[in-house]
């Protein structure tokens, strides 16, 4: 399209280009700063001499963090809940999305089920009754306390059922004619066709489990059962106390600055690694769920 841009518009375009790039840089700058601190030698890090580039490059903070058994344990707890939790999430999401994607005409009581499920998004018992339930079920200090309360991801069910609805009805009808029941339709027709959506939801679910720190904090009494993010939360709490309550960074805390940064950076790393895949899929996922004809 031929455009007739005025000089004013060209000026705006240039300024806008710089502005947008500046905003984007602002989003990642703190993360780069963190990485630089974690890779710097202790003295420089503690004296706040590090900007965006490591001063006195070395990996000692990472070595120290990896030698820490607690960090390692916490990582394993997270890994276990991630595998267990994502599997449970995906099985339940997949099984629930299929029946709910039917029309009320084809599946009576569908709307009743939908309301039962959606109501849990609108109202909840709140923190204390939820905690009491988990403790009455004797799940405190069990890995299942991190998996079962979030087993059904209602939002994921809605995304997947909207995806199922876009699939051509004829496929299902053909399967029916050939004598296939609902289970055959689900696993032989819908599952292979919905791999992109399933991949997206697996990523969502994994990121959720990786990032969740609160259930670890309330449901785990023993510190060595903390998942990684909860372990970091406790570290953060100590740092915050040093920074805010004592008014000045105390010596003990300051000497750990590069170690602290290294641990945070390592907890960020897996997200960074799956991010290219995430980014490819999630735009699709969001649009898939929200913009409908």
């Amino acid at each position: 399209m031929k455009t007739y841009d005025s000089n004013a518009y060209r000026l705006f375009y240039g300024v806008n280009l710089l502005f947008v790039i500046g905003v984007a840089v602002l989003c990642v700058l703190p993360l780069i700063h963190l990485m630089a601190v974690s890779l710097s030698e202790k003295g420089a890090a503690n004296a706040n001499l590090v900007g965006l580039w490591p001063v006195g490059f070395n990996l000692s903070a990472y070595k120290e963090a990896l030698a820490n058994e607690k960090f390692y344990d916490a990582f394993l707890v997270t890994l276990r809940r991630l595998l267990l939790g994502t599997t449970v999430n995906m099985i339940l999401t997949f099984l629930m999305a299929y029946p709910l994607s039917k029309e009320e005409r084809a599946f009576p009581y569908r709307n009743v089920y939908v309301w039962v499920i959606v109501f849990t998004m609108l109202f909840s018992g709140g923190l204390i009754p939820g905690y009491m339930l988990v403790s009455q079920l004797n799940l405190i200090d069990s890995i299942w306390a991190l998996v079962l309360p979030s087993a059904v991801q209602t939002f994921h069910v809605i995304l997947l059922l909207n995806f199922f609805r876009q699939l051509p009805k004829q496929l299902e009808e053909a399967c029916y004619i050939d004598g296939g029941g609902h289970f055959v339709t689900l696993f032989r027709i819908y599952l292979p066709l919905s791999m992109p959506a399933v991949a997206t939801l697996i990523l969502f679910s994994m990121v959720m489990h990786w990032n969740d720190w609160f259930s670890g904090l309330i449901y785990m009494n023993k510190v060595d059962l903390y998942p990684l993010q909860t372990y970091l939360q406790v570290l953060l709490d100590q740092t915050k106390k040093a920074v805010t309550i004592d008014d000045a960074r105390n010596a003990a805390e300051a000497s750990r600055r590069s170690l602290y940064s290294a641990q945070i950076f390592m907890a960020m790393l897996p997200i960074l690694l799956v991010y290219p895949f995430l980014q490819k899929h999630f735009t699709k996922g969001i649009v898939m769920g929200s913009i409908k004809e």
Partner: peptide, 11 residues
């Protein structure tokens, strides 16, 4: 997560 971002922001 806000734990990670909190850690960065506090610093």
């Amino acid at each position: 997560s806000w734990v990670i971002l909190g850690g960065i922001l506090v610093d």
